[in-house]
Amino acid sequence: MTGSRKSLVLALAALAVLAILPFVIGNYWLRVLTSVFMVGVVAQGLNVIVGFAGYHAFGNSAFFGVGAYVVAVTLNAGWPLPLAFVAAGLASAVVAGVFGWPLLRLRGHYFAIASVALNMAFIEVILNLGGVTGGAQGLPLPISPMAPDLLYRIIYFLMLGALVAATAVVWVLSQSRLGYALRALKDSESGAEVMGVDTVRAKITAWAISAAMTGTVGGIWAYWITFIEVSSAFDIGISMRAYIMMLLGGIGTVFGPVAGAFLFQIVATMIWAEFTHIHNLLLGVFLVAVVMLVPNGVLPLLSRAGWRAASARLGGASTRLSHRLFAREER
């Protein structure tokens, strides 16, 4: 069985388990898993712009907030729910397109802080707009008439669906012309240009895709928690955590960010449940520790350990093979 077939089978099996789980587990773990899917989508969104195109969009949380506010405002205006979610994704993509046109011309550090500034600018704009956005008071959403148990399970499947869709998009992207163009411009922008890649269009498309994913789950999140304010919707910690998940799982891979999201969120939930008052301090320590100890991600580390164990058991031919693989990896 080839590697991609194998991971596809694994993914389908995991999906089947995740589809049954909400009927078995209690509301606590339901909430934990729902948030895992949510941050998984944010991590995939970041993966598109950072992992493929190499642009460090630290302020990608801006789109999470835009999506949340679009859903809140449209639902309050009486729009049907599915339309509100679509509007959240589209609006975020449009914002990314409009701001991406000037901002994506900046490279490296400049783009990173410009995207952070974009996020901060949204906070200020919404604080000052007031009116339909609620300004500094925050914005309540209409409460669903559904029974909570049912509603939370629907939201679980919405988030799971979003994660599957986002991962599928990343998989398609990794095989597509655009995906190759993005990886080319990540290595060398002028080189890609010479080879006939329309780099400006490729970058803007990538950011718009990234924004649409992030904005859609931002919208679902707003519907989930029924009250949003700028400090929670435009929390830069959202993109920061997504960065760590991407780091843990492996940047620029299809399943890495998803694996990273599971690992991070579940470990985090278990630890933070005990220490809610120093939550941020532990998150900070965790961020620093990950970068210091496993900067290439946990998955490559695990697979390498797996190889070592396997070659130790089989010896001979497979050891030589694994040596050759390591040599390639390390080069």
């Binding site: 960065y243 780091l247 998150l283 900070g284 320590v285 961020l287 620093v288």
Partner: peptide
């Protein structure tokens, strides 16, 4: 990427 994550972590701490 790594320096941004580390400095953000320090900030939180």
């Amino acid at each position: 990427l790594l320096t941004l994550v580390v400095t953000f972590g320090i900030d939180l701490i």
